[in-house]
Each structure stands twice: as C-alpha cells, then as structure tokens.
Design a protein around this nucleic acid. Sequence first.
DNA 1: CATGAATGAGAATTCATTCAT
DNA 2: TATGAATGAATTCTCATTCAT
Lengths: 197, 197, 197, 197
Amino acid sequence: MASNRQKEIALAAVKLFEQKGYHATSVQDIADEVGLQKGSLYHYIHSKEDLLLQIAHEAITEFNDNLQAVLDTDMSAPEKLVKAVENHITVSVSNMETTTVLLREAFSLGDPQHQVIQDLTDKYVDLWTQVLEEGARSGEFHVREPKVVALAILGACNWVYRWYRQSGQLTPSQVARVFSDMFLNGLTSDNHPGVQQ
Amino acid sequence: MASNRQKEIALAAVKLFEQKGYHATSVQDIADEVGLQKGSLYHYIHSKEDLLLQIAHEAITEFNDNLQAVLDTDMSAPEKLVKAVENHITVSVSNMETTTVLLREAFSLGDPQHQVIQDLTDKYVDLWTQVLEEGARSGEFHVREPKVVALAILGACNWVYRWYRQSGQLTPSQVARVFSDMFLNGLTSDNHPGVQQ
Amino acid sequence: MASNRQKEIALAAVKLFEQKGYHATSVQDIADEVGLQKGSLYHYIHSKEDLLLQIAHEAITEFNDNLQAVLDTDMSAPEKLVKAVENHITVSVSNMETTTVLLREAFSLGDPQHQVIQDLTDKYVDLWTQVLEEGARSGEFHVREPKVVALAILGACNWVYRWYRQSGQLTPSQVARVFSDMFLNGLTSDNHPGVQQ
Amino acid sequence: MASNRQKEIALAAVKLFEQKGYHATSVQDIADEVGLQKGSLYHYIHSKEDLLLQIAHEAITEFNDNLQAVLDTDMSAPEKLVKAVENHITVSVSNMETTTVLLREAFSLGDPQHQVIQDLTDKYVDLWTQVLEEGARSGEFHVREPKVVALAILGACNWVYRWYRQSGQLTPSQVARVFSDMFLNGLTSDNHPGVQQ
DNA sequence: CATGAATGAGAATTCATTCAT
DNA sequence: TATGAATGAATTCTCATTCAT
C-alpha cells in the first residue's frame, strides 16, 4: 500500500544510507534527494530510524522468503545448498544497496527495533541450518556442526556486498558456483565440476 | 610510545564503540569511562575519529602480520590455510571488541582515513589470495578463482564476530577446524578427519 | 450563528485544551477528535488561536452577564453577594472545562486578542466591586477597600476550578455557602447561620 | 551549590517565563538574555523543562517553609492566620515573577515532574487546613469545612499575582490586612479593627 | 596535566497554515 | 465541503572541539 512518494523516499534513503552510512545521512539529505522540504518528509515517514527499519525489514524478509521457498522444494540437500547460495548472492548483488544497508547499517537501530531485525536474521540462520541438517540426515553431507557450517556459508555470502562490484568480474551466478563448489567439494578433492570435464 | 593513559583511553573507546557503536558513543562517554573530563581527553587524542582510526589500524595490522608470518613459513598450502583460519578466528574471538570495531565501525571513518584501513584490508585479501595461489601452483588446491575463494573464506571468518559468544559453545580452535574442514574437503567428500577415525 | 460542526469543534477544543493545555494540543488533535482532517478544520476556524479566543470570550461573557443580572435586581447587597458567589461557583463547576480554559489558558493568546479577554475580565472585577460599593454605601458592608475585597472574593472563587472535583464532596451550592458565610460573617464573629440555630 | 551562572540563568528564565509564558519563551531567548550561545546553556541546565521545575520547586518550597514556621509558633489561630496571609502576600509580591511562574506556568510541566509540584502544593493546602483546624478545635474559629475555607483563603491569596502591581496602591501588608480582616470578621459583622476605634 | 566553560554548527522533529483538487 | 500534500519556520537538544586558567 506504499504510495509512489513513499517508495521514492525509501529508494532515496537506501541510496544515501549505502553511500554515506545511516548516521552521516541527514533527513535534509533525503529530502533534497526527493525534492521535498525536510518537514514534508514526515507525511511519509515516522522517523529516520523507522525508515531504516523498513528498509532492513524488507531486505531480510526477502532473503528469508527465498530460502524458505528453496526448503519447500523436493530437491536434494546439495541441490538446495547450491540453489540457496545462488539465490543469496544473486539477490545480494542485484539489490546491493539494500543488502548493504541491511548488513552494515541495521546495527544503528535502537533497541526495540533492532531486535525485530535480529529475530529475522536468527530465523535466516535457522533456515540455513535446516538445509545442512537435511543433508546430514540423508547422509549427503558430512557435517557434525550444522549450525557452525551454516554460519560459515552465510558469512561467506554476506561478505559479498563488501567486495563485489560490477567492474568486469564474474557474474553473481559464477561467484555462487565458485562458492558452492568449495562448500560441497572442498579445495583438495578431485571431483570439481570444472575439473571433471 | 603510547602512554598508559593513551592505552586506557583506547581500551575504553574500543569497549564503548563495540557496545554502542561509534556514532552513539560520545567523547563524554569515553571521558567518563576513564575518569577524565572531556577536555582532558584531548591531551591524549587528536580527535574521536583518530581514535577509531588507531583502533582499526592496530586491529587490521595484527591480522596482516599474523598472516604474513604464516606465509613466510615452509608449510604446505593446506597447512597454511588451516593455520591462517586458526589464527584469524582465534584472534577474532580473543580480541572480539577490537575486531568488531574494525569490521563494523571502520566505515564511519571519513575519506582520507577510511582509505588507510581499506588499503590494509586489501592487503589482507591479497595475502589470503597468495595462500590459495600457492596451493593452486603446487596442485594441492583445485582453484580457478583464487581471489574469489579467498574472499569466501575471509567472509566466513569475518562473520564470526557476529555470532560467536563464549556461551557453552565450541572453542575458537574447534570452530576453525570445522571451517577448515569444509574449505579443504567440502561437505560431500568422504575424507573428513572426524569421519576417518 | 455557529453551525453544528463549529460547535462540535469548539467542544473538542475545550476538552483538549483543558486536558493537555493549549500549547500541548495540536490542530491535529482537534481534527482527530471531531473526525476530520487537519486541513478541513480550516473551513470552520480561522486559526487555533481564534478558537481559544472564542472559547474564552464566551466563558467570560457568561460570567459578566450573570453578575450584571444580579446587579440589576433589587436585592440587598449581602443578598447580591451571596447570589453572585453562588452563580460564579455553580457556573464554574458545571462548565469546568471552559472555565479552566478561560482561567488557565487565555494567557496564551497573543497581544491584540489577549486584550479582549483582559478587558472583559476587568469589567467583571468592576461589577464585583460595584456589589461591594453598594453595600458600603448602604452601610450593610464594612468595607474600606471595595476593589481589593472584590479581588479577594473573586480570587477565592476563581481558584475553585483548581481543586473542585465531583468526587464525593460538597455540591457547588454548598461550597458557595461556605464561601459566602466566611465573606459575610468572618471566621471569628458569632453570627454564623449554622451556629445561630 | 548553584554557581553564579546558574542563578543568572534561572533569573533570566523566571523573567522571560513571566513575561511571555513558558511555551512562548525559547531556549534561544534565555541564552540571549544571559549572553551565551544556545548550546552553552546546556552546561547549566538539563532541559528547559527542568529549569521550569527548579523555579517552581523553589517557589512552592518557600511558601511551604514559611507556613510551617508559622504553624510551629505558639500564636493563637487567628494570629497564625493573619501572619500566614501576611507572609503569603508579601512573598508573592516581592517575588512576583517567580510566583507567577509557579501559579501560571507549572501546568506546562510534563507528567512525572508536574506531580512533584502538585504534591508540594497539596502539602501547602494541608498546612493551611491545619491552621483552620487548630482554630476550630480551640473554638476560636467557627468553621465546619476547614479544608474548603482553606482553599477559599488560598485562592484569594493566589490570585494576587494577577492584579497586584506596585502602581500607587496598597502595600502588600495593607492588602494582607484587608484580606485577613474579611476572613476573620466578615463584611457584615461589627467588630472590624478600623471600625472599633 | 587537568579542568570546565564556551562554542557554533547541525541534528531530528513538530506544527499551524495554505491550497489545488 | 473535504482532503492531504506541501510548506517553512521554529524548536529543543547534542556534540566534537577549543582554550584560558
């Protein structure tokens, strides 16, 4: 039900939060970006912090929904892991600004609001852990610490926003494949897709 | 040549920056923590931002030095990787506050100063990449994108500060072993240390 | 000639001004109370301040009219005083919200408008003074400073809104009788109505 | 322990609050009055509201202390009442600005802070009521509703700030005598001090 | 060394009012 | 008549930094 102006403001905020950081972005900056007076912004937002909350909320929700969808399929565990990595990185890169705000700026949220994002983030870790537990149960994965492994994989994926830039590099899918290959096959084993052929 | 007072101030700042974030920490907060007046702090620091720079600089330098030391040994590539992961996670966890400030708050540095940290961070990525390239050259690693793999591993390791808490979990070394195991052997291969026995 | 909507708005304003004070009441609050949008209010009012002026004006006018009516009778001076006190307190209590706004909030009026209320208030003091002067002239009252006495009585009566609450206390008329009794007979003389009988 | 600057600021605030009202006085106004920058004020005050609280607190405390001192003497009840009226009006007039702020502006205090003043004000009413109860017990006063009578007297006294101006009128003591005379002897009885002689 | 007064720029937010639709 | 978007000025308060003592 967000009006155009609301979307416009959220987009401007995402852009500025990504560029300068939440704290270094003033409400004036956002107003300037959308061509409104500072005061007029408050027809659309509750507070600057609320704007950040909304952005972060939408971002983490998309990650959660995507991963839940993968879990709901009847793929094998390795297939799910590959797909989950692919999804995460693709979304990360195509919504790089939003992802950056989620991962870098959400900590600036005050306490009741920060917890909302924290809870959804915990949920995301749980879903990743489920992927690994499924594989462990089926014998497809050799995992004794599924949660720690999930956090390792998630960490690798969440770091992408810090280094990925479009500049003449691998596509998100290619990055995802490099990641999945290592996660599944390791660096020292022989069964690598590129190598096998 | 840092005096006791300077160290004390840096420690207070690290603690507060970790707890509340750089922006939410006022110079007054730091002064209170060390039992000085706000004005007196400026006998020891140039600016709040400079304090952050020093903390981040020291942190990233330690990571760099440790990794360089590993590279300077004559271990095999897999051994180096294992050692590097072990070092990174151990240091991360034992200096959790400092590491948190480095990874979460350094972005708040203004431009000339942020670049200093960025350059050292790039250097750190280079060193990791060297580990992988060594393994690739020697045939020990099956890696076609050593830098991307380095970034994956680094991302996994850099994420640890976000979830590791002392509370009844694995030790840093155990976490490091879980990580290395996956990086080297993958989730699907059979040659896992824990499994072999 | 006030329309229903205008009356409704004035009532809402009185209620809110009494509860929260004039400054703490926003035009939005009033709009919410009557179920209109902020902008729509301005079809009915000139300004928030004008609303306050109207409320205060109506209130002080009623006090003046009532007192003038008493003066216009051919009662004795003591009877007039008793009646005036009774009127004032009765009206005060039955229109407590309006009276509160008049006595507590009218000061918030800006200068040209505040003077309107001030003049009517001065008039009210004059009327009270007339009651006392009548009694002085007729020898019924022993008064050498009729205006000061008028102000004492008025002060006592105007204070009622600060403490009178319906909660199981005297009725307004009973309060008025306690007041008049003291004003007429004093605390130490022997001729008190209740005592004589 | 208030420094000179703190007193100076409080005095400036009292003056401005009395002249323009609390809400119409900006922190800027106060800063201008004492010749400081807006921000510098905050070395001395917690908030604008706190400034108001302090002023009101000091004022009501003085009234309470004075009345308690009268109660602690061994005067007769009528003497105590005369003295209490004299004290109240004298203090009222000599600290007219402060008294005005207490009686007119304290309502602007937000809730936890307003209650502090309210409680002290309730205490003041209690003390007045004690004066009347003493007289009732000793038979010196003919009073059946000591609290209501106390409120009448207090109301009369508290109204003084609204009309008393130095301009060629009675002195505070003379006003007090006019008041006491009516309260004690009434308007219609024969035993008035001036009349007896 | 240490203080604490002072700065001054800047922050988020509120709000009465206007006006095109 | 009703809306709600837009204004723009004002407000309180914060804060890193400086400097005379």
